[in-house]
Simulated assay, not measured.
Amino acid sequence: RCYTLPTSIIDVSRYPLIQEADVIHLHWINHFVDYPSFFKKVKKPFVWTLHDENLFLGIAHYTESKSYGGDLEAEYYHKKMKIVKGIERLGIVFLSEMMYNQYRQHEMILNAKTTIINNAVDYNNYYPAKKNIARQQMGIPQDAVVFVFVSAELFDSRKGLDILVKALENMQILNVMILAIGTVGSYQVSSTVNAIGPIYNIEKMSLAYSCADYFVMPSCQEAFAQTPIEAMSCGVPAIVFPVSGTRELINKTNGILCNGFTQKDLEEGINKAMNTVYDSDEIRKDVIARFSPEKIAKSYMDFYNQILLDKKL
């Protein structure tokens, strides 16, 4: 969604778990948390993990949409800032260094404590299958060169499926296939795209990742890219654009971080990946070491304690 109001008719503050909690951890709260009443009634420490730019805007969720918000954008920005600045103890979690560097000194959160904690991947759910078996079960030809692409909506231009299609068509790779996962909607599927729709079963999602030779994310905007670490948990190398989170994610052993956001940049990244030998076991071990639920949970527990102990916030 591009726009949401920071108001709601739902009184979440009355919920028993809110009353019992020592710390309130917020994620995506739009449409059901009413800023004016909720933050006035609930006088507890808050930790807020940011999944987009909405906290720093009025009603928009991305800076590129800000100009279309009109008077409402400015009106709700000032209302939100007054409310958020009134929170006595607030901890802000950024999912990536890029978001942290961009917003940690923003006027909305000058009184807040800030940190970076990446998303986790549940490696017990996302695990590799043998490629030939995965392809057999998913109906994918054994001799295909498979690039898996994932987006909630394939027609979302920010996610870059069109760029991937054009890049692979231009490169003329023999037996190439894009295994595209997500709602097809109005997207016009080309001959190189095998659009299988959305997948809601994690076991099947692991099979889909395991079919691939490479995972590709030519996205122009992310808070922290979740799908690459899912693919890498299945032992698949990733080729990604340099969006938020990917600089921390990609190294020489697990994939390619493209130099920019153009078709040429993507083609160069794909070419580099195809000329690199990757060890699937090492890719999985690395992602578990850095993004396991156990490691990320410990980071959150440490941050909760900081917020609880810091009376100056």
Results as ranks from 00 to 15, higher is better:
Y100W: 05
F149C: 09
I163A: 10
R104P: 01
F147V: 08
G160S: 10
L110D: 11
S157R: 14
E169Q: 15
R135M: 11
I140P: 04
T114D: 02
A144V: 08
V145T: 14
D156F: 07
Y126Q: 06
M81V: 07
Y126N: 07
V121D: 00
Y126P: 06
A112K: 06
K130W: 09
I133S: 13
R158F: 08
N118C: 02
V148W: 03
S157N: 13
I133M: 15
I140W: 08
F94S: 00
M81C: 04
K85M: 03
D162R: 12
L164K: 07
L95K: 00
V165P: 07
N124R: 14
M99Q: 13
G139H: 12
D122S: 07
V146Q: 04
M81E: 10
N118Y: 07
N118A: 12
K79L: 11
K82T: 07
F94A: 00
K80P: 01
Q136P: 08
N132Y: 10
K159N: 06
Q137H: 14
Q102I: 09
F149L: 07
V121S: 05
A144Y: 11
M138C: 13
F155A: 15
I116S: 02
L95M: 01
L154T: 12
T114E: 03
I109K: 00
I117R: 00
D162G: 08
Y126C: 08
I117W: 00
I116Y: 00
D143K: 12
V165Q: 12
L174M: 13
N101K: 15
D122Y: 05
M171L: 13
V148I: 13
A144E: 11
K159I: 04
N101R: 15
S157F: 11
N132P: 04
L90D: 03
V150Y: 01
L90Q: 06
K79G: 01
A152I: 08
D156T: 10
I173S: 11
Q136T: 13
L164A: 04
G139P: 11
M138V: 05
V148N: 07
